[in-house]
Computed example of a mutant assay.
Amino acid sequence: MILPDGYSDVPTGKIAAVVTHLEMTSPPPRRDDPPGAWRLRKAETPKLDWYRDLYRRVGEEWLWFSRARMSDAELAARIHAPDVEVYALVVHGNDEGLLELDFSEAGNCELVYFGVTASLVSTGAGRYLMNRAMELAWRGGVQRVWVHTCTFDHPSAVAFYQRSGFRAFRRQIEIADDPRLDGTAPRDTARHVPAIE
């Protein structure tokens, strides 16, 4: 459905975001790693509690909620799928970043989740993580790597993806139940997105 020009009401109890899809169809030039004590660790068959904790710590402030609403069976089916890889950015022995790659569509790799915890924003950790993502994504006949972000995410997210070599190709509006109103996320999360009851 295409929304008409002008304002469209969002029902009470819902949130609305502009989602931007970005892609690249060839590997970007290699970028230098920033200085930092980071390393990437592959999470083989990630434990659900571990995944949920890292997902929450990385994404809760940006209203990542879809995985938080999944049952154990749904989440396990997703992150244990054979074409899905989950990685953690490790800092001083602690998992502080999340990278999830989906190779299930032939010739494509989706960066399903990409982010670092709040204390690592603007430290270079995101660049380090993106450099590793590009090394991992461009393999085995991949011809396209894509990602999406939205207006709930960090305000620099789109510019960061563009600097990394992605170009925008699609825009959508996403409307969903506000996760702060049903207990999925704390009420005081994401103050940049007012809750309307």
Rank of each mutant, 00 (worst) to 15 (best):
Q172C: 12
G6L: 06
G107N: 12
I173Q: 07
D102S: 08
Y87A: 05
P194N: 04
Y87T: 07
C109G: 06
V158W: 03
V18R: 10
P35Q: 10
G6M: 09
Y7N: 04
D83C: 09
R180Y: 13
H192M: 15
Y51R: 01
L101S: 11
K42M: 14
L3S: 07
P34S: 04
V147S: 03
V10R: 02
L48I: 15
Y55A: 01
L22Y: 06
F160E: 01
H21W: 14
V121G: 00
D33W: 05
F169T: 13
V91I: 00
G36A: 05
Y87I: 06
W146V: 02
M1A: 10
P179L: 15
T20P: 00
D9K: 02
V145N: 02
A157D: 09
N131A: 01
R171G: 07
E74I: 00
A157V: 07
R144Q: 14
R78Y: 11
M134R: 05
H148C: 06
M70A: 00
G93N: 11
V84E: 02
G107K: 12
M1P: 10
L22H: 04
R144C: 13
D49I: 12
Y7E: 07
A159N: 12
F65N: 00
V121N: 00
L22K: 01
D153N: 09
L22T: 03
I15H: 01
V147M: 00
G36D: 12
G165E: 08
G36K: 04
I173V: 15
A73Y: 10
N94F: 05
C109P: 09
E135Y: 06
R163N: 05
S8N: 07
H92R: 09
V145Y: 03
C150E: 15
R69T: 03
E105S: 13
G126Y: 04
D5K: 04
V91P: 00
V193I: 13
V116E: 03
P4A: 00
A159W: 06
L3Y: 13
L129D: 06
Q172H: 14
N94K: 11
L129W: 11
P194I: 03
R191D: 09
C150D: 15
Q172L: 14
A88G: 15
L111C: 06
W62Q: 02
R67A: 03
R187Q: 10
S71Q: 07
V147K: 02
N94R: 12
L22G: 05
F166N: 01
G124S: 03
L181M: 13
Y55G: 09
H148L: 00
E44Q: 14
S164F: 02
T117F: 04
A137G: 05
H21G: 02
H192I: 13
A88V: 10
F65I: 01
P27S: 13
V58Q: 02
Y161H: 05
G183D: 12
F103T: 04
W38C: 10
L129M: 15
G126D: 09
G165H: 09
P27I: 09
V18T: 11
I173H: 01
R31Y: 00
A190R: 06
D9N: 02
H192W: 12
L98V: 08
D32K: 10
W138H: 11
P28W: 03
D72H: 10
E44M: 14
R167C: 14
